[in-house]
Simulated assay, not measured.
Amino acid sequence: MTLVLFISVLLLAATNGANDNFKGVATLYGSRTVGYWTSLGWASITTLAGSLGSVYLAQGLLKAFTGAGLVPADIAAQTSFALAVAGGAAITVALASWRGMPISTTHALVGAMSGAGLVAAGMDAHFGSLGRSFLLPLLASPLIAVIPAFLSAPLLRRLVVRAERKRIDCLCIAQGTITTPDGLMMRETAVLRTGSTTECGGSDTRTLMRFDATRQIDTLHFLLAGAVGFARGLNDTPKIAALLLPIAMLDSHAAVLAVAIAMLLGGLLGARRVARTMSEKITDLDLGASLAASLTTSLLVSTASFNGLPVSTTHVAVGALAGAGASGRSGVNRRVITDIALSWVVTLPVGALFGAILYAWVR
């Protein structure tokens, strides 16, 4: 059963990668700043970095998702309980990824944990702690993300427009002469000026610095998207790795490494369907809205990770995209948002169903 648990957890990590890896860079691809594979590559690198960093920065989440507190400690330590949770969540996330629906792996885990816990412990399961510790942060995530994204998007749109209008390519020193009115005296002078690459390219100029305002904004966009990927890896990896702790041969470091590699491969192989939903179907992303969504998501998920709060990167990212899109002319696709919200509603009960079935089967 130990091997089956190990495979189940890796499958969960892979489906998590397929469903979640692209969420941080959806704004890069949606705004057509870069293409699909460049976006996915950047997501993979930053998510892997966050996953490895979770060993030192997110120990609170590693402890929270062992099941201790929801069920008695002896049940939480069972390999069969961890297997039911991993398998139930993996099936739930895999079905959502196949449908192109961005759901919360955290929600799927909580559902599977609840279903397996109900079968394992009956009324001895502490579902009150589940609501306080898990459900409240998860439900609040999209609502908290909508407001800052909605408010910051117009400001960042104006920043983008201003950068495009006042584009400066270089800073240079121009050599020249000053002649007196009577034409008898003249002296050389040096003038510091900005201008286009052509204006700074004359024989009487010396270029000090080359820069492009729009390129600087694109760089900022990349960094923000990377911060989302890092925060997602930081937040999701310990939740999945915790299921491997009942295997005595694996410590927390080895468990995190195994999960990180599986998440990386799952994202590279299976992210396209969810990528289309996040990047193209929720709203038409302009650069300003993309910056607002990335900034909001990275700040909220990073803060939650450092404080051990199990927020959903999915809920935060979708909320930020909806808020940023709603502040612009394109608005949001209500049908897609409704479909995503419905998938969130059914995630927990579906995960609970599969978790309960698997635990009843393997115990």
Rank of each mutant, 00 (worst) to 15 (best):
G323F: 08
R335G: 12
T283C: 12
G267Q: 04
S305C: 02
L287S: 05
T297Y: 04
S252W: 01
M263K: 01
A322S: 14
S298Q: 10
A322W: 07
L300W: 00
N333E: 07
D284R: 15
A231V: 07
M278I: 09
S330L: 03
N307D: 01
L257I: 09
G270K: 03
S294D: 13
V259D: 05
I340S: 05
A271N: 13
D286Y: 02
A262W: 03
T313V: 03
G226D: 12
A241D: 06
A317W: 03
D236T: 11
I282W: 10
A275K: 11
T313N: 10
A304N: 06
L295C: 06
L264N: 04
L264A: 08
T237H: 06
N333Y: 09
L291H: 08
G288N: 02
L268M: 12
R335S: 15
T237N: 15
N235T: 05
V318L: 09
G266V: 05
A292C: 08
L234S: 11
A258V: 03
T313K: 04
V274T: 09
D236W: 00
T237K: 05
D339A: 14
N307T: 11
L257H: 08
R276C: 00
A258I: 02
K281G: 02
T313C: 06
K281I: 05
G233A: 04
D286F: 07
A289E: 11
A324N: 11
I240W: 02
L309V: 14
V336I: 13
L291G: 10
L245C: 01
A322R: 08
G323K: 11
G308Q: 02
S305N: 04
A258L: 11
T283L: 05
T296G: 04
I247S: 02
A324G: 12
L309D: 00
S330Y: 12
H315P: 10
N307F: 03
A322F: 10
L300E: 05
L295F: 14
G308Y: 01
S330G: 09
S298M: 14
I337S: 12
V311F: 00
A289I: 06
D286E: 13
G323E: 13
A304H: 00
S252D: 07
T297R: 04
G323S: 10
N333R: 15
P238K: 06
L287T: 14
V301N: 11
A317C: 08
V301E: 02
G270W: 01
G308H: 02
L264C: 08
S327K: 07
L257A: 08
H315L: 06
T303Y: 10
L291V: 13
P310L: 09
T283E: 05
G319I: 11
A324M: 10
A289D: 00
V301H: 05
R334K: 11
N307I: 01
R334P: 02
L291S: 04
S330C: 03
V311Y: 00
A271E: 04
H253G: 01
A254R: 15
